[in-house]
Design a protein around this nucleic acid. Structure first.
Lengths: 105, 105
DNA sequence: TACATATGCAACCTTTTGGTTGCTTTTTTA
DNA sequence: TAAAAAAGCAACCAAAAGGTTGCATATGTA
């Protein structure tokens, strides 16, 4: 929910790698993550938990496995936030430019 | 430079607040940041250093003050990264959809 | 020049993070 | 049913983060 939490979850190379692989379709279970990333299962689990808390992935226990899937909603929220910042900045620059022009005339 | 570093820098409520205020034009110096955010000067400085290392802001010593300015380039990079993830995901969903259709015919 | 302002650097402290090992439980499958 | 595969939980550990105080330094200003 909190935007800072989303960014924080993305702010780690291992987690970014997980997200990147998930978005292109690999890494389906907890153990495949730990194998592919070369971490212990618990190490992988902690990272996945962080991502799940930020709602960037979903973890569903299914029989013996825990299936990991990508959840793009939070990513969209992060995207919107960044865009909003860029927009604010542009508006401000534009205001400054207009002020400078007004100064000239 | 590293995308994870950018996200990490954004992954803290205080720093997000700083960036947000900067993008709309307030918070010009180190001390104004510390005053407005209610931190000690050194606390503020550490946060600003993190943002500067991630190249999200510029700090330039100017006489007695240190002027803080917003630097939107890294933000654009983060934006592109997120977009690329979303695109990958969409491509994959599309492939799945086509596969399902092929299955039907 | 003397004083106030703005900053820098270093040390310190507590909490969080990233990672591990060990042990138990659940679910397949041979 | 017995073995192995996948996972959960807890404890532990070192390093990083977030924040503080103290002291020194540079820069304006009265």
């Amino acid at each position: 929910m909190l935007i800072a939490e989303t960014f924080k979850a993305l702010g780690d190379p291992v987690r970014l790698e997980i997200i990147e692989r998930l978005s292109s379709g690999s890494l389906y279970t907890l153990s495949s993550v730990s194998k592919d990333l070369g971490l212990t299962r618990q190490g992988a689990r902690k990272h996945l938990q962080v991502l799940a808390d930020a709602e960037l992935i979903k973890m569903e226990p299914t029989g013996r496995n825990t299936i990991i899937t990508f959840a793009p909603a939070s990513l969209k929220a992060a995207d919107s936030f960044i865009k909003q910042l860029e927009r604010k900045w542009d508006v401000r620059l534009e205001a400054l430019r207009e002020f400078a022009e007004g100064d000239k005339s």
